[in-house]
Design a protein around this nucleic acid. Structure first.
Lengths: 342, 342
DNA sequence: CGCACGGAAGTTTACGTTAACATCACCGCC
DNA sequence: GGCGGTGATGTTAACGTAAACTTCCGTGCG
């Protein structure tokens, strides 16, 4: 900056004014400074700026993995909206979500150049965390029920599950089986709870749920056991990838979808319309989740204080495709199933 | 820091020494300082540190989209390895990959707090970019053939495609059809080129390739036209998602996989083992790509100068599952196909 | 007993930027 | 013609940290 000032024959303050677009610089001077900047390849030093302003214009994102569709799409939305507001995002991955690692991430984040933090993770992992973020760093959490303590943005998991179950019951199915995600996932828990309470509210029997780990592999395993389950004509699977595996298991066992069994997924990943049977599924609006995270966090930064705790639920939408159909008559179900038992 | 110093009854320099783990602090003093730090919730200010050291310990990643499996897995690997080296990563998404936007991203990156940049994008978009990064900021590029100008890390696309084609020819197929990715993608181009040259080297006819856009949707469309193609017994699809769509199209048209038609994909997304027919595919090692990017970039930072241009190719591996089989006898192919033409 | 030495802690300064204040020249008006 | 005002630019200081240098004190040795 001093070099630019010297070359342009002005003071460094004038260079600063030009680089910040102040108005009180006469055009001739401005042009000289700009020319000097170009010639010297000058770039403002963001560390010095951050030091001066006390802000970094950066939001930290702590997350477990980018591998899941949901996370990567949420992060992408966060990055896009943050960019639109002049904020960059810094990613802190936690490879194994133990408390120690999460703590470490927070500690590092505390030392990092961020103005606020978005946590995409089960908040349980933070419960015993004694580490506090530096005062003035704000937190928004996704995938959590800690709305009483944090500012939470999440998909309305419960309503999505409710829609799925209602859809299936409305098609005449006696009840709905469920393949859940891992127990450690809050999203999975809420989908399972809503599935159960919706069945109970309708006075239907509640079959024992199966537990998967979000992977197609675990969906396949669940599918193999459900295919042999007498009376199973409708399944609500907690995500699309598991539904893919389940579809294949049912196909292998000769259970026709949707004629014998109806299947509903969750997420609406781009592929699910091209599954062997185009999948009826509950669409999550990840982009909206990301948008609201950024909005919350920026509000906090601008107001200079943490937002009121509270949960902000993003609605879901049931997408009806070809994997659900009217329940088969009971007799037919039994007749069709019998020969397939092994 | 001054407050901590006052509370601990030492100078700020001693606080600095403690917070950097210097040895020349007597344990008693150190404990006092640590206690004061805890009491006051002191965190070192990273902006000031960056200003002092001239480094940010941050790597910028410019990319088009996180939506593709490959990108998000590469970014994840980058983040993980960078974290292991004490570096954070800052994400700069470019929503629409026009030159203007890429330029803008570079400009913003130039003003950002990063020591180096990894670009996950077609380098063509940068060709006309007159914007230069600040001197001392280093670039590594993924998905590019610009090894003569930049430091490039990429999957060995060509060899992967070659393996796929050889596998199919080895099973006795007369030739191999191809569904490529978009023409704007360098990865797609190289896979297509290698497919063509491998067929030519083997003296086989080269069918007209079909072009998709990586989506299952476009693979489905390609599958619908290939299903009617006489003599098509083997298809190399440029990614797994398109293969999923193609599988469905073939299934709808009654073309059995692998009995009538063999299919090979590319990527090895986690789902591909649970496609309706478990997919034979070329595995990309995204984690390794990410690792090498970080390694290259850190080498540059540490040596203080840009690396020699050059391309670093990460090998691929053919995973043989159930979607490929020996070519059917010609007569049978025709017999089986004929009734299905519409 | 005095002096050199070494370890612990303090002091000074610089990193690059910008807010706040100071200066200066020029303009218009009485 | 002097005086106040206004707009352009310069000067000073401060943001928080750490390297380099300085000071101080105790120890061991001749």
């Amino acid at each position: 900056m001093a070099d630019v000032a010297k070359l342009a024959g002005v003071s460094s303050q004038t260079v600063s004014r030009v680089s910040n677009g102040h108005e009180s610089v006469i055009p001739a001077t401005r042009d000289q400074v700009l020319a000097a900047m170009r010639q010297l390849g000058y770039r403002p030093n963001s560390a010095a700026r951050a030091l001066r302003y006390g802000r970094f214009n950066t939001i930290g994102v702590i997350l477990f993995s980018l591998a899941s569709t949901g996370n990567s799409r949420t992060v992408e939305a966060i990055a896009t909206h943050a960019a639109a507001e002049g904020y960059a995002i810094t990613l802190i991955p936690v490879d194994v979500p133990t408390q120690d690692n999460v703590l470490g991430a927070f500690t590092r984040m505390g030392e990092l150049a961020v103005d606020a933090v978005i946590v995409i993770m089960e908040i349980h992992l933070l419960d015993a965390a004694t580490v506090t973020l530096p005062p003035g760093v704000y937190v928004v959490v996704v995938d959590s029920d800690a709305g009483d303590r944090y500012s939470v943005v999440d998909t309305d998991q419960a309503d999505g599950a409710r829609q799925a179950v209602h859809h299936l019951l409305g098609l005449g199915h006696e009840t709905v089986w469920h393949v859940s995600g891992p127990e450690t996932s809050f999203a999975s828990q809420r989908r399972a709870q809503a599935w159960r309470s919706t069945l109970e509210a309708a006075g239907r029997p509640v079959p024992e749920p199966l537990t998967g780990d979000w992977s197609a592999r675990s969906g396949y395993a669940a599918g193999l056991s459900l295919a042999d389950e007498p009376g199973c004509t409708a399944v609500f699977v907690a995500n699309d990838q598991m539904a893919l595996g389940l579809l294949r298991a049912f196909h292998e066992r000769g259970r026709a979808i949707p004629d014998e069994v109806s299947v509903v997924g969750f997420d609406d990943i781009p592929d699910s319309a091209y599954f062997p049977t185009p999948l009826t599924t509950v669409r999550q609006d990840f982009a909206e989740v990301g948008r609201r995270c950024v909005q919350r966090v920026l509000t906090q930064i601008r107001e200079g204080q943490a937002a009121q705790p509270g949960t902000d639920l993003v609605p879901t939408q049931l997408l009806i495709r070809d994997s659900t159909a009217t329940a088969p008559p009971v007799a037919e179900t039994i007749a069709a199933r019998k020969p397939k038992r092994r």
